[in-house]
Design a protein around this nucleic acid. Sequence first.
DNA 1: TTGTTATATATAATTTACTTATATATATTT
DNA 2: AAATATATATAAGTAAATTATATATAACAA
Lengths: 117, 117
Amino acid sequence: MATKDLLKGTLKPIILKLLSEKGRLYGYEMTQSVKELTQGKIELTFGALYPILHKLEEEGIVQTESEVINNRNRIYYSLTESGKGKAQEMIEELEEFVSSLKALLNPNYGLNYVLAR
Amino acid sequence: MATKDLLKGTLKPIILKLLSEKGRLYGYEMTQSVKELTQGKIELTFGALYPILHKLEEEGIVQTESEVINNRNRIYYSLTESGKGKAQEMIEELEEFVSSLKALLNPNYGLNYVLAR
DNA sequence: TTGTTATATATAATTTACTTATATATATTT
DNA sequence: AAATATATATAAGTAAATTATATATAACAA
């Protein structure tokens, strides 16, 4: 992937955003969702995903339910009641960051807006 | 800063964007520009900035001119002619990344757009 | 005049979020 | 029979940052 290094620090809030949107997801499903939503541009690798999920569980931000589907184990993740606040916080931080990047990439935005009217 | 980890990988294209916009900048000036454009939300630290600039110069993407202003040394950076292509490439990569983040943060954007009309 | 803040560049040590590689196992498709 | 898709897990390595430190001048305040 070209975006390799750009990802650092964004994966955790991305996962939390997915969970806050969809309620309940298992790991493999998350990687597929991210791929779909970004048209393959961002790939959530397993080596990154599972350690993050384990850490989020440790921190009490997500909880798990194990189910056996088609004889394969599947672990569903969802936000805990107490974790929802922290999750929202991190999502908003990412939103603000994206906002800042837009300001840097489009420094004349305000000006263009005025000129365009 | 709250955005700490989010920055990884974005600083280089941000610097290149600044240089492609303004033509010529010195290091200290870059940190001020980023602070202004992002309303203090993104802070380009010196420990990050100078190693990146030195590396960009090594790679032939930027060139320097030393000047003494007010008895203080000042090193101006600008894109080399041959570096402009590579710079543009990295800037576009960042733009695409921001696009992907927007898709993840606003998964119903298309839908909302239709509904809002 | 002493101290603080702003201007200006530089680098070394440390952290840590990733990538890459590897492992295991079943189901489905070719 | 082999390859691909589904599903989770972890260890080793990389590299881009943070943090801390160093040097030096100018401007301003107490």
